[in-house]
Amino acid sequence: MRSFAIYSLAALAEIGGCFAFWAWARLGRSALWLLPGMASLALFAFALTLVASAAAGRAYAAYGGVYVTASLLWLWRVEGIRPDRSDLAGAVIVLIGAAVILLGPRG
């Protein structure tokens, strides 16, 4: 449960940071959007170091499923576009994959 909370924080920070850059580059927002964007991306990187994993690559791989799902939630709640069936099916698939990576037995 702790890992999921950390991954959720990381996803929110990453998506928020990336959206700040998107807003500046694609939506014509002020360059001042880049400052909180960079801070948010730094929080994202730090958050992933808090996951209980002996290998960074495994932590990042498991995070991918949470990131995809959080991105679709962002699409819906922030951008106002409701995810379709394919989006939801893809989120379920990647979350299952993330769970296998995160919770699978290690030798």
Rank of each mutant, 00 (worst) to 15 (best):
residue 12 L to Q: 04
residue 36 P to D: 00
residue 28 G to C: 10
residue 42 A to T: 14
residue 92 V to N: 06
residue 101 I to W: 04
residue 95 L to F: 00
residue 16 G to Y: 01
residue 106 R to L: 13
residue 8 S to R: 02
residue 82 R to E: 13
residue 32 L to G: 00
residue 19 F to T: 09
residue 44 F to Y: 08
residue 82 R to V: 15
residue 15 I to K: 01
residue 69 T to I: 06
residue 19 F to P: 06
residue 43 L to D: 01
residue 21 F to R: 04
residue 43 L to T: 09
residue 85 R to P: 14
residue 30 S to L: 02
residue 32 L to R: 08
residue 88 L to V: 11
residue 13 A to K: 00
residue 22 W to P: 00
residue 48 L to E: 07
residue 47 A to E: 08
residue 79 E to W: 13
residue 87 D to F: 10
residue 97 G to D: 12
residue 103 L to G: 13
residue 25 A to E: 14
residue 73 L to V: 13
residue 28 G to I: 09
residue 51 V to Q: 01
residue 39 A to C: 14
residue 52 A to R: 15
residue 1 M to Q: 12
residue 60 Y to V: 14
residue 58 R to M: 09
residue 14 E to N: 07
residue 67 Y to W: 05
residue 26 R to A: 15
residue 70 A to F: 08
residue 24 W to C: 09
residue 25 A to C: 14
residue 71 S to C: 09
residue 106 R to S: 13
residue 29 R to C: 10
residue 56 A to S: 13
residue 65 G to F: 01
residue 82 R to T: 15
residue 68 V to A: 10
residue 82 R to Q: 15
residue 10 A to T: 00
residue 11 A to F: 08
residue 46 F to A: 13
residue 82 R to P: 09
residue 101 I to E: 11
residue 32 L to M: 05
residue 26 R to M: 15
residue 96 I to E: 00
residue 98 A to T: 03
residue 10 A to K: 01
residue 30 S to Q: 06
residue 25 A to V: 14
residue 85 R to V: 15
residue 2 R to L: 12
residue 91 A to R: 04
residue 89 A to H: 13
residue 85 R to S: 15
residue 47 A to K: 01
residue 2 R to I: 07
residue 8 S to Y: 06
residue 61 A to G: 03
residue 73 L to G: 06
residue 69 T to L: 11
residue 83 P to I: 05
residue 52 A to K: 15
residue 9 L to N: 03
residue 22 W to Q: 07
residue 4 F to D: 04
residue 24 W to S: 08
residue 7 Y to S: 00
residue 22 W to F: 13
residue 52 A to E: 01
residue 59 A to T: 10
residue 51 V to P: 00
residue 10 A to F: 02
residue 30 S to G: 11
residue 57 G to F: 10
residue 78 V to P: 09
residue 107 G to F: 11
residue 12 L to P: 00
residue 92 V to Q: 07
residue 14 E to C: 07
residue 65 G to Y: 00
residue 102 L to E: 00
residue 42 A to N: 08
residue 24 W to V: 05
residue 65 G to H: 01
residue 49 T to I: 05
residue 63 Y to N: 03
residue 84 D to G: 15
residue 7 Y to E: 04
residue 49 T to G: 07
residue 71 S to Q: 11
residue 35 L to K: 00
residue 63 Y to E: 02
residue 85 R to Q: 13
residue 62 A to C: 05
residue 92 V to E: 02
residue 68 V to G: 08
residue 27 L to W: 10
residue 96 I to V: 15
residue 90 G to F: 11
residue 11 A to W: 07
residue 83 P to H: 09
residue 35 L to I: 07
residue 70 A to C: 05
residue 70 A to D: 05
residue 30 S to R: 14
residue 78 V to Y: 09
residue 66 V to P: 00
residue 75 L to P: 09
residue 1 M to C: 11
residue 49 T to F: 10
residue 102 L to A: 12
residue 23 A to T: 10
residue 18 C to A: 14
residue 50 L to T: 02
residue 88 L to S: 12
residue 106 R to H: 08
residue 98 A to D: 04
residue 73 L to A: 12
residue 52 A to W: 12
residue 67 Y to L: 14
residue 78 V to S: 08
